[in-house]
Amino acid sequence: MMRETALIEANNLSVAVPRSSRWFPSRKPDLDILVDVSVAVKPGEIVCMVGESGSGKTTFGRALLGLVRPSAGQIVFDGTPLPDFSPPSFKRIRREASLLFQDPVTSFDPRQRIASILAEPRRIARSGSVARSEIEELARKAGLVSPLLSKFPHALSGGQARRAAVARALSVVPRLIVADEPTAGLDVSVQGGVLNLFLDIREEFRTSFLIITHNLSIARHVSDRIVILYLGRVLESGPAREIFRAPRHPYTRALLDSEPIPNPAKRREAPPVIGEVPGLAARPSGCEFHTRCAFAQDRCRHERPLQTAISAEHEVACHYPLTPRLTVVGPPPQRLPKTANR
């Protein structure tokens, strides 16, 4: 199969935090935040990682840049795998990727003015001074007016801060931008502005994006591919159009159904997701979604489903994936031809 090589690829990436201290070891097993997450982002592609809070999506973004140390798996950048997860190995990725934090204001040094914040990546990269005109040009590109450059971060509004964060990310033209909830706390018009800015950046520099969000309408608006994360595992991943048209995992479908529709005449009839996300410390047996799944069978309680390819790029981890255009609620769920299980 001919495939464009991915810019960045995470293969079975896991993050676990120890729960027992080094000096007083206890039997407590490590807490798994991410388990075997495999995601690839191709050059110029926008991948959306969608999940509820606590699904590990922020951790994934940080793990890609080495801000959280992965415990297992592999990261391949530009076709070359990282030798290990030590900070020096991540330098290669950090040089070419930027991270947009969930709260842009906290990601700025409170004692630096915006101009100097924007210049920071360039100063680090070429360790020289940065001309004022360069910074103004950068700010203009991100839609920031130049009077803001002499302000301190706390004086910016939410949208201005977000734009400043994007401007900083563009300071050294990145090949990958990891954006953690890029529209959090912005009103709808500003949200659109930020997303259009992303699209412009992609157009101009062929930058890849990994957008981490819980907001499906954002994913619908910009993404090429979608990865659905639940309790640190990928439940479904595939082309955005396919997933929005015909979700295969009951969870994906439930997420789509819980998205508000502006038209009261159009009502979806599928059940919403039941209850709360189970804790990471008490993962359910078998398929971890079975506690909230409307279609759960006995098998789901005991056996963990594997990632199964549905089409070339579409994978789902479910014993009983939904068939496309299934509109009737409830069992009996359609069985797909059995694939390699176990």
């Binding site: 940080r62 840049l65 080495g66 801000l67 900070p87 330098k91 950090r94 040089r95 990727a97 930027s98 991270l99 934090f101 709260d103 906290t106 990601s107 700025f108 040094d109 409170p110 920071e120 990546p121 680090i124 990269a125």
Partner: peptide, 16 residues
């Protein structure tokens, strides 16, 4: 804090 994490993600050296 995030801004120090951001510096790390920008490849800033430890002395910096």
């Amino acid at each position: 804090r995030d801004f120090i994490k951001a510096e790390q993600a920008m490849n800033a050296s430890t002395p910096r």
